[in-house]
Design a protein around this nucleic acid. Structure first.
Lengths: 321, 321
DNA sequence: TTGAAAGCGCTACCAC
DNA sequence: GTGGTAGCGCTTTCAA
């Protein structure tokens, strides 16, 4: 490459990086650019970051479960915002199981920042990452982690708003769906806690309703509906709400007449159901905001971990409640 | 690290990589392991691949749009299969726009293989990647790309099966929904072509129905339904099918009595609709199979590009058709 | 059985 | 303005 342009490797580096401290003549620049084009030259990221002592790579684990469209959009925004701040965002996929092993795997890439949604990172993992040179570790989920910045998505607020809404609509016997999928526990149990706290001291009752994400499970639950005598149900999220609504309607339960239903996360399908599904939406921050947090943390790695709690919720009242 | 264990850096490398060509005494191994543990030592992937001249990183672009659960599961399978084959899978997210610029950005990571779903990679991009040392470039989508291996998902087969199914059920005036989202064109236009070819020469008519993914757009389309006088509609996919079904039912059109509806991609919501939604599912290969293709291509980079076409489809006949 | 040293591709410092 | 060169962390060959 340097040979083809008839200059030294250093000059090539100067030209391609537009190094301003050094002034290169226009003809030389041109020759270098042409040679690069012709050879299809692409710089070697590994060599560059080895030399620089750091990369501008932000690592996130690739989501393991199909995420909702809301979250997907948030992720997309976040990535392009980080891109605009000149970070390279990389989702680490593959066999790496969650836990401190995963942290070690991420650390091998020497990322400048690590962004972990959900659980799956303990204080040990944070320590490993920081020692490997990560200047910012940000968790994103229901629980903060020792030593890391956190965007805490307060799922109790979702449960609280849902239960409160049902109570205000005059309902007194409230069921709360608990998905049996173990991966959802981290979300469902704070939602349950929130619902419980909203009803505490009101005289209304709360009934836990474990439910697998399958039609027959929903049908079995619906079959017990008379015995349960619930006049309202918070269905964990809109998908479960749809599942359960369907089963209840097939079972002859009128919605919202006999039982009010409310979901969460404002999925696209809510307004398409009949009755249109009421839902609770947690106000995710804009991707830009989280990107800005990351950038701030990178610039000032010494600062105390920021902890932002998102507990703003919107109840979208449609017809089912 | 080497200092703490009182050995040379070479010895450390031997121990941590279990290099079999060299025999290290047990006490030394132990000392090294302990020091590594204590320091939280994590190898430096960039340095390693710089030295080795190649990495075992497989790069894919991060999906820009919310993907269906079917595809998400496929992706997850693929990633863990590649992980088991000892590749590191990395989804490249961020500002990198599609096109040859994206290929250059990926090439900076010097991946051993690149996997690109959808369009967004031209022959030029393939060339860049190969020159940068990628031993396998695999595209995954409706169209193969010059010079790259391809898993061709033949979307025409989906449209063909849907239209044929409707025809066999006695329908003669078939509408085909075309999403207005530009990102879906690569899927919708071959689906349309397939439907057209299934009806060619049968005397049945085909009507194109452009539709935005919004309730009011669907309502407007439903309002024209009498004039259109269609007795069947292939709704592009299950989500659009749900949207349109809802609008038609609100408009008093009985399903499937007056109009049969069929979707595609067998989304989870299909069986929850009333009538239960018929759908067409493209038989994606198992993630393992694609992982195996990648591995084969990496081991034998000289081989001619493989081109596998997936055109196996299943019509899931429920109640809406 | 262990250590010394070269060199992967790149950038930054210094000499010309 | 441009070129020489050291050195980032690692693996591997060769010598001790």
């Amino acid at each position: 490459m340097a040979r083809l342009a008839g200059v030294s490797r250093a000059t090539v580096s100067y030209v391609l990086n537009n190094t301003r401290a050094v002034r290169i003549s226009e003809p030389t620049r041109l020759r270098v650019r042409e040679a690069a084009e012709q050879l299809g030259y692409v710089p070697h990221a590994a060599a560059r970051s080895l030399r620089a002592g750091h990369s501008r790579t932000v690592v996130m684990p690739a989501p393991a479960f199909p995420a909702g469209p809301l979250y997907t959009r948030f992720l997309g925004e976040l990535q392009s915002a980080l891109g605009r701040l000149d970070y390279t965002v990389v989702q680490y996929g593959g066999a790496a199981p969650y836990g401190d092993d995963a942290a070690r795997a991420w650390a091998e890439l020497r990322p400048i920042a690590v962004l972990v949604p959900g659980p799956g990172l303990g204080p040990g993992g944070v320590e490993v990452l920081k020692r490997s040179g990560a200047r910012a570790v940000v968790t994103l989920g229901p629980e903060p982690v020792e030593g890391a910045h956190a965007l805490v998505l307060d799922q109790t607020a979702v449960g609280h708003a849902a239960a409160r809404h049902l109570y205000e609509r005059g309902r007194r016997r409230v069921g709360v769906v608990l998905p049996e999928e173990p991966g959802l526990r981290i979300f469902s149990s704070p939602r349950l806690r929130g619902a419980r706290s909203a009803l505490r001291g009101t005289g209304a009752t709360l009934t836990e309703l474990p439910l697998a994400c399958a039609e027959d499970a929903a049908a079995r639950l619906a079959a017990r509906w008379d015995a349960l005598a619930l006049d309202a149900v918070f269905a964990y999220d809109d998908a479960y709400a749809m599942l359960l609504s369907r089963a209840l309607q097939d079972h002859g339960v009128t919605l919202p007449g006999r039982t009010a239903v409310i979901g969460a996360d404002d999925l696209m399908l809510g307004p398409l159901l009949r009755p249109r599904l009421s839902t609770v939406r947690l106000e995710l921050p804009a991707g830009q905001d989280l990107a800005a947090l990351v950038d701030r943390a990178v610039r000032d790695p010494g600062a105390a971990p920021e902890r932002h709690t998102v507990r703003g919720v919107t109840v979208v009242h449609r017809e089912s409640s």
